[in-house]
Design a protein around this nucleic acid. Structure first.
Lengths: 341, 341
DNA sequence: GTGAAAGCGCTAACAT
DNA sequence: ATGTTAGCGCTTTCAC
């Protein structure tokens, strides 16, 4: 396990009979170092097998060029797309990504924040776990002025930027569409109301009903984990309802697809008997039959914007001091909700 | 951007009127430090807001507790599942994950390796890009005895462990199944033959044909990027063939689904006219109609095993010095390939 | 059980 | 244009 021994700038300095400082400068294009000296240094470094020591540098300059990413889960289409966007930007701007999953647990989230803190990340990109109650665990970082950006599942904080879509409007759009298709009893299936995304979508659902003067039966609201399994169970629950709902708006596509499958299996026709609208525009939404009406959620773009904003903030660049950034969403109407020609 | 000032072990030492060495020891359960001293130190650390400095420590002990992950793309079901598995294990064992995407480019792969090298990761988990020709860019790390594990898209190297499934057998299983269903002209759609996974699956395809004495028309082999777009194009190409193939084996499910959609759109019935088998057991495989026959690829498990093996190697634990680890795959037969009752 | 002191490899202010 | 020097914060050997 032990390496022969690392080459340092001192070794190069000695070999070339110059000072370590000059080597350090030569290695990084410092202005005011002769061309030939620089060339000599680079050449020596290369052939001695010199490897830059990032730690020593970090220790010295107190900057890591590393961004921490804390997310509930990595393995969903939406999240992997977001991360892909973040990685792209980070890579372009010379930052590395340190990634940690909370598995939807507040406890793990706290642990992750602490690890990131100790790793001295330059900034944090966070989407909150289902059951996170407050965001005090970020206080230590904020006190040190380490910028934190929340995305998707966000928290209100005067010092942090949030990047979201307008979930209220999206919920409103989805629900209004169902109402326009003639639905009178629309079920809502969503995740924990502690999280803005689900609370807001429910709000939009209510707004749409209110605006059209349609009463809401509270029994039609189901809160679950939005997993495939949970979707199937929700479908069972819905099919027990009497009278049967004639529309379902659910807060992700995984759930929507699971529900449609159960309904079809039970011989209930979609959209004729029950119209369904999902959320995210996951690839499965255009594979399921009938194709799923859903809200397009720009994941890659959200990742890119989050990373860009964070890096700009870290470097005190302009356009950094925003409170909230709202991306555009759109309702994609497909067959699963269309009852009218 | 400037923090008030970090608390160090010296500050704690001064406050408690003891030495920094004692503080350092107290902070980490060093045997041979009095219980009450330790308690005093921990208490002071807590209330002074002490934050451990990982860099200084790394610099000192030359270990980072960080694992580098280099992959083609993050945003596929398979890869995000793998990463989720890795993160789980890394987290449990106190390691962090540094992730980088090559976007299928060898050039970016080389850059990533260098960054990881400079970041002094303790080990590397790698799945190769489409067009990587050789693996010399890993030599510097290997020379320093930094362990590297390849998974999925691997390369032969005496010093590295590879984690794979038996792609030849998987390709054989898929093809043999199609032959058993009565297919006589089976097309193969796969990715770059520079990568073991695609070359091996093609090999299996050929083996199955050879074993049954069925001749192969080379015109039936299509090499592309396996994207959705590429899948649609492959379908177009296949539909031009005369005579039409009666079976398609394609190396991922994204491609398979795109192909099925095109075929259906063109009025070709699946599986009656053309039977289709995919690869990966992506969620879309059981949503598409007809449900897709595919090879189950244990992504999460592969990620967990890769991470476990790497961490064991880093720590010189037993069972670490393996050359190749082969995980179990299985053929999942669904409707897209079933012609017989 | 605790302390003194020497570095880990690099950078940057200051000097030349 | 280059050199000197003083740390960054921590660990650890060797003393006591």
């Amino acid at each position: 396990m032990k390496s022969p021994k690392d080459i340092t700038i001192y070794d190069i300095a000695k070999a070339l009979d110059i000072s370590p400082a000059t080597v350090s400068r030569g290695l990084k294009d410092h202005p005011g170092i002769r061309k030939d000296t620089k060339k000599k240094i680079l050449e020596a470094a290369r052939q001695m097998g010199y490897q830059h020591n990032t730690f020593a540098r970090n220790l010295r300059i107190k900057k890591t060029n590393t961004i921490g990413v804390i997310i509930p889960r990595l393995n969903s289409y939406f999240m992997s797309t977001v991360i892909a966007g973040m990685e792209k930007i980070a890579n372009e701007r010379g930052y590395m990504l340190l990634i940690s999953q909370t598995q939807e647990s507040a406890k793990k989230e706290i642990a992750s924040v602490n690890t990131m803190f100790n790793s001295r990340v330059d900034g944090l990109l966070v989407s909150l776990a289902f059951d996170t109650e407050n965001i005090e665990h970020f206080d230590a970082m904020l006190k040190k002025e380490i910028p934190i950006i929340f995305f998707d599942r966000v928290a209100e904080h005067t010092k942090c930027t949030s990047i979201v879509i307008n979930n209220i409007k999206a919920g409103y759009d989805a629900t209004m569409h169902l109402i326009d298709q003639g639905c009178k009893r629309i079920a809502y299936v969503g995740g924990s109301l502690k999280r803005n995304v689900y609370a807001d979508r429910l709000k939009g659902y209510k707004q749409a009903h209110a605006e059209r003067g349609v009463a809401i039966d509270p029994a039609l609201t189901i809160i679950n984990t939005l997993s495939e399994q949970a979707g199937s169970e929700a479908a069972q629950q819905i099919m027990q309802m009497n009278p049967l709902p004639d529309g379902i708006f659910t807060a992700n596509d995984t759930s929507a697809v699971a529900i449609i499958r159960e309904l079809k299996f039970a011989g209930i026709s979609v959209p004729e008997q029950i119209a369904v609208v999902g959320f995210n525009n996951d690839p499965i939404s255009w594979v399921i039959e009938p194709n799923l009406t859903t809200i397009h959620y720009p994941g890659q773009e959200m990742g890119e914007i989050a990373a860009t904003t964070l890096i700009n903030t870290i470097n005190n660049l302009p356009a950094a001091n925003l409170n909230t950034l709202v991306l555009r969403h759109s309702l994609i109407i497909r067959q699963s909700s269309q009852r009218k020609k």
